[in-house]
Amino acid sequence: MYRDTNALIDELTAGLEPVRPLRLSSGLRFALAGLAVTLAVVALLFGIRGDVLAGRLDPVFLLSAGLFFVLGLAASVTVIVMSRPQVGRDHGGWRWAAAMTALLPLSGIITWMVRGPDAVSAATVGQGLECAVIGSMLGLLTFAVLTFWLRRGAPTSPERAGLLTGVAAGSFGIFALSLHCPFSDVVHVGLWHSLAVVVSAGLGRLVLPRLIRW
């Protein structure tokens, strides 16, 4: 540290450069641009599911994709807001979106129990794991975008910021993949698509704090 705070103030003053304040709208545009690129990757690499292209939209697909999109949006907005610290803020609104989305795995588990153990075969597990892994990977761009934003910002709770970045990345990733995934079954969507969000959230919580401390 400096021996004299006046010397520090002199140096900081001399080094002042104009800055553009971080804006919520800019951060959100940035995050949505990342999602748009992710959607384009899904369309180009995997293709869009036939019933969507034909305009025959399955209700389970609509509900699950919508819930993951809203959860991704809520988590992204919270992360962007967290980059501008302010005593008196709660950052807890995303939990409502998470609670609503949690109805998907809950419905999946209940439906699985009602149908019996045979409802989940080795083949469906393989398909499910594939969705969970690819969905998590598709969240990487959102993860990178939000990490970049957090490094510009000043999050006071790196652990929570990491968790939420993972939730946002996983939700947007699986939302994008759901435009390709041909399965609209609530067990598949509820268990395996939700798993992508959980895995991504765990990775964010583990990996991100050390990248965004300041």
Binding site: L12, P85, R152
Partner: peptide, 25 residues
């Protein structure tokens, strides 16, 4: 804290109060 303030100048939102921002830092 003054150094952190300097490095994180862009995180202050001019439409919001200053002291709660400084207190968070």
């Amino acid at each position: 804290t003054l150094l952190a303030l300097h490095h994180k100048l862009a995180t202050y939102d001019p439409a919001r109060p200053f002291l709660p921002w400084l207190a968070a830092i």
